[in-house]
Design a binder for these strands. Structure first.
Length: 754
DNA sequence: ATAGGGTTAG
């Protein structure tokens, strides 16, 4: 199967000029303009230029109107200038820099309206603190701020989390005696609540007699953002006449605190109170539906959206897509996505994230590709959804492309730490553990998650010593290890067979760090003990668990039974596994291998018959390899690749050279052993050998070949790959279901223990 | 002429 190729690395971000949409039709507006010979207009409001101004739909036409305003001398009136600036700064097609140039070239002292307009315009930009500069300029020009000035400026303080500036402005409000204006009052409360000064917000609220739903709601949101939902609820219950915004704030409060059931309960009470929900209510409810997998309510909201003719609303549609994806209804999500004509970046991110969330990684990458081809610029959120797909599929080239794109194009990243952590994880899972470490060393915003990703990456590659040193470096830097850190530590010990050390860490985790072991920790320990043949200790650890062992734990025990040839215990373990996971064919295969190892061929045949009777098919072995940004997948005996002929020619050559090097396939395995990969034909047709052969013909001699396999590597392939690495002088990095194998000069980094 | 509280993607 082929995935669409990676687009070339973009150079500079495409500077989208806003005027590109305006067409030549704009000239038609001009013949309505009065010439200078027209009669004078006494009422400025009715001047045709100003009427045209209010009808302007683009900045392009506005500039034409502006030219005419100058011709007629109207620009000398502050009224016309105000209109012009207001339009430029706040209309849907705003051009703030043009508004500012009009402001700078004003022939007279600007009026408060113009200052207020500019302050508000700045408050809506990504750098809202500029509105404080405009405010200072206003004061310096001797223009007095009024009740319209402060709400926007407090919004700026709130947006940029500036409590100091907010406090100073609050004292200005009191000096000017504007504190009893309802708009100013509410914006002060909201400002304090949003910059984390809930005490001040409460003081302002308590001191004033103004207690409408609006000021109440501002305070409710403050409690929510402090995580005090129950206090918010107490206050909410006191609101005399709750309007839709008050209800929305309360419902959102529950959602933000992950209390989704209560959010839905709150919605029920809202309906009983007879308050009509609006778009915001629905967006918030959809979030709760997704988390609770409440498909039915979600569908109901979907029909509400259609009934209210809001299907073109992108916010609602992306929330619906997210809800469907979280409920596992990916096709319904995609149908909605396909129905949207003008997609914004959020809706792309939602759909890609939906695929990634359900582990449909190929679809996620295909849609990401389509997104780039549609000239939509990806964001950090896009990459947070795409990188796990790269990591899972081993799409290293695409991952590298994203890394370069982030370095070049994303100047300020909202989720910088999460993004770097995803990159570290991607490099590690794609086999580039050294690059993963380079990235880890280069970043300034390391979080516990970054340390954890690096640790488990090293563990995956069998570098137990480096993983353990990293963790001690981490604790030296003052980070407190969490349960995930210990999963990395214990799996490092497991991969390297460090039994005593593993036990020490396990004890330290519970005793020193008071972390109660989870299933994964037990899994690592039981795997570690069983592999070393310490079955009794593994069993007693299992008995000490206060939870039921899962399939993975029984599976690792069964695997250990195979390695140590313990038939009796193996039969017992297999029985447990059959009961827990009747559909797990791997369990039958393992038991069959145990019988084969003991020469009990009748039992081998019995298991095979059992599998056939149940109509069970094993998961087909599949290996993927990325060449020039394209991911190629191979199945057992695959003949569907476009270059199949060349691949099989190479395969024959490989077999010939392997034979000359003394490689003898284990024929007993072919006859009796049912290893993880179903034996359909010759061993040389195993998917990893196909992928390696393809790699040999399509990459330069001497370069590293990276492959990803969905199952564990079988013994024959492991031996063959070691020899191939020597014969062809290639480093081969193979990821199997459990870990990495670095094949080089005839050896493997796992020391033949996996 | 202008201004207040609430909402989404991982």
């Amino acid at each position: 199967m082929l995935l669409s190729s990676v687009p070339p690395l973009p150079t500079a971000p495409a500077s989208s000029s806003s005027s590109s949409s305006s067409s030549s039709s704009s000239s038609s507006i001009l013949h309505f303009l009065p010439s200078s010979t027209d009669p004078p207009y006494t009422l400025l409001e009715n001047h045709p230029s100003l009427i045209l101004l209010s009808q302007c739909e683009s900045i392009h036409t506005l500039k034409q109107v502006h030219g005419h305003v100058i011709k007629t001398g109207l620009h000398n009136t502050l009224f016309a200038l105000s209109k012009l600036i207001h339009f430029c700064a706040l209309s849907p097609s705003a051009d703030l820099s043009y508004a500012l140039s009009l402001f700078r070239s004003a022939p007279q002292q600007p009026n408060p309206f113009i200052f207020n307009t500019l302050i508000r315009a700045h408050s809506l930009t990504p750098s809202p603190l500029h509105s404080l500069n405009t405010f200072s300029e206003m004061i310096a020009s001797g223009v007095q701020p009024n009740s319209h000035t402060f709400p926007s400026i407090f919004k700026s303080c709130a947006k940029s989390k500036a409590p100091r500036e907010g406090k100073q402005l609050h004292s200005q409000v009191i000096k000017l005696g504007l504190q009893s204006d309802p708009h100013v009052h509410t914006s002060v409360i909201a400002m304090y609540a949003k910059v984390g000064e809930l005490g001040d917000a409460r003081k302002v609220f308590d001191k004033s007699p103004l207690r409408d739903a609006v000021s109440f709601t501002a305070l409710v949101t403050g409690y929510v953002s402090e995580g005090r939902v129950d206090d918010a609820r107490t206050l909410f219950d006191e609101i005399p006449r709750k309007d839709v915004v008050s209800w929305n704030a309360m419902i959102a409060g529950y959602v933000q605190s992950d209390r989704f059931e209560e959010a839905l309960d709150c919605f029920d009470v809202m309906k009983e109170a007879g308050v009509e929900p609006d778009q915001s209510t629905m967006v918030t409810l959809l979030c709760a539906c997704g988390h609770l997998r409440k498909l039915e309510l979600g569908e109901w909201i979907g029909s509400w959206v259609r009934d209210h003719r809001l299907s073109s609303n992108l916010q609602l549609t992306s929330s619906l897509i997210d809800m469907y994806a979280k409920c596992g209804e990916i096709d319904k999500a995609r149908d909605l996505f396909d129905g949207v004509e003008e997609r914004d970046v959020i809706i792309w991110n939602t759909m890609i994230g939906g695929y990634s969330h359900l582990c449909f990684y190929e679809d996620a990458l295909a849609l990401f590709d389509l997104m780039l081809r549609s000239n939509v610029k990806p964001t950090d959120v896009t990459f947070l959804a795409v990188l796990p797909a790269c990591a899972c599929l081993g799409a290293l080239d695409l991952g590298k492309w994203i890394h370069a794109y982030v370095d070049r194009n994303l100047k300020s990243i909202d989720n910088a730490s999460a993004l770097w952590t995803s990159l570290i994880d991607m490099y590690a899972k794609c086999g580039s553990i050294e690059v993963a470490e380079q990235v880890f060393r280069s970043i300034s915003c390391r979080s516990l998650a970054s340390w954890n990703a690096m640790t488990s990456g090293l563990a995956m590659h069998g570098h137990a010593d480096r993983a353990l040193r990293l963790v001690s470096e981490m604790t030296d830097e003052g980070y407190q290890p969490d349960d995930i850190t210990f999963v990395g530590v214990l799996s490092a010990c497991t991969q390297a067979g460090l039994v005593d050390l593993g036990q020490q860490y396990f004890n330290s985790m519970t005793q020193d760090y008071k972390i109660s072991p989870k299933l994964q920790h037990y899994g690592c320990m039981i795997d570690l003990l069983a592999r070393s043949g310490k079955f009794e200790e593994a069993k007693s650890l299992m008995r000490s668990m206060d939870m039921e062992p899962d399939g993975a734990i029984w599976g690792s025990l069964l695997n250990a039974c195979k390695v140590h040839g313990d038939v009796e215990f193996g039969e017992y373990v297999a029985e447990q596994l059959f009961q827990l996971e009747p559909e797990n064919t791997g369990a039958y295969v393992l038991l069959s291998n145990i019988y084969a190892g003991a020469g009990r061929w009748d039992d081998v045949a019995r298991i095979r018959t059992m599998l056939n009777d149940k109509g069970m098919k094993k998961v087909p072995g599949c290996t993927s390899i990325e060449v020039d940004g394209v991911v190629h997948e191979f199945l057992v005996g695959d003949k569907f690749h476009p270059q199949s002929k060349e691949i099989h020619t190479m395969l024959d050559e490989v077999d010939k050279l392997l034979g000359e090097a003394g490689f003898v396939p284990d024929t007993s395995e072919v006859l009796y052993d049912m290893d993880e990969e179903w034996k359909e034909g010759a061993l040389s047709h195993h998917s990893e050998k196909l992928a390696i052969s393809f790699g040999l013909i399509s990459t330069k001699p001497g370069t590293t070949i990276r492959i990803v396999k969905n199952l564990r590597v079988c013994r024959n392939c492991h031996l063959a790959t070691k020899l191939i690495s020597k014969i062809f002088n290639r480093e081969i990095i193979a990821r199997d279901r459990n870990r990495f194998h670095h094949f080089k000069d005839g050896f493997c980094s796992c020391n033949d223990c996996w």
